[in-house]
Computed example of a mutant assay.
Amino acid sequence: MLIDTHLHLVDRGQLSYPWLADVPALDRDWSYEAYDTVARRVGISGTLHMEVDVEEGCIGQETNMVEQLMSRPGSLIRGAIASGRPEAADFAAYLENLDGNVVKGLRRVLHVVPDEVSQAPLFRENIRRLATRALTFDICMLQRQLPLAATLADAAPDVIFVLDHCGVPDMSAESFGDWKEKISELAKRPNLNIKISGIVAYTGGDFTLERLRPYVEHAIGAFGWNRVVWGSDSPVCTLGGANLETWVAATYALTLGCSKDERAAFFSENARRIWQLD
Score class of each variant (00 low, 15 high):
225 W>E: 09
227 R>N: 14
18 P>F: 14
78 R>C: 08
36 D>C: 08
82 A>R: 14
268 S>Q: 15
179 W>R: 08
220 I>T: 12
53 D>K: 02
211 R>A: 07
116 E>H: 01
199 I>C: 00
108 R>L: 03
39 A>E: 03
241 G>E: 15
222 A>C: 07
106 L>Y: 09
136 T>K: 09
143 Q>F: 01
69 L>Y: 02
93 A>N: 08
255 T>F: 07
43 G>A: 03
65 M>Q: 10
179 W>E: 06
119 Q>S: 04
78 R>K: 11
189 R>H: 14
112 V>L: 04
121 P>E: 09
188 K>T: 13
143 Q>D: 00
157 P>F: 03
244 L>T: 02
103 V>I: 10
107 R>H: 11
101 N>M: 07
16 S>D: 13
157 P>W: 04
183 I>F: 01
232 S>P: 09
248 V>E: 06
278 D>A: 10
88 A>F: 07
6 H>T: 10
145 Q>I: 12
227 R>K: 15
263 R>L: 09
134 A>F: 08
40 R>W: 11
145 Q>A: 04
111 H>N: 02
166 C>K: 04
144 R>S: 13
58 C>A: 02
209 L>Q: 13
273 R>N: 08
54 V>C: 08
95 L>I: 15
41 R>E: 14
60 G>D: 00
89 A>Y: 10
49 H>E: 09
234 S>R: 15
215 Y>D: 01
169 P>C: 15
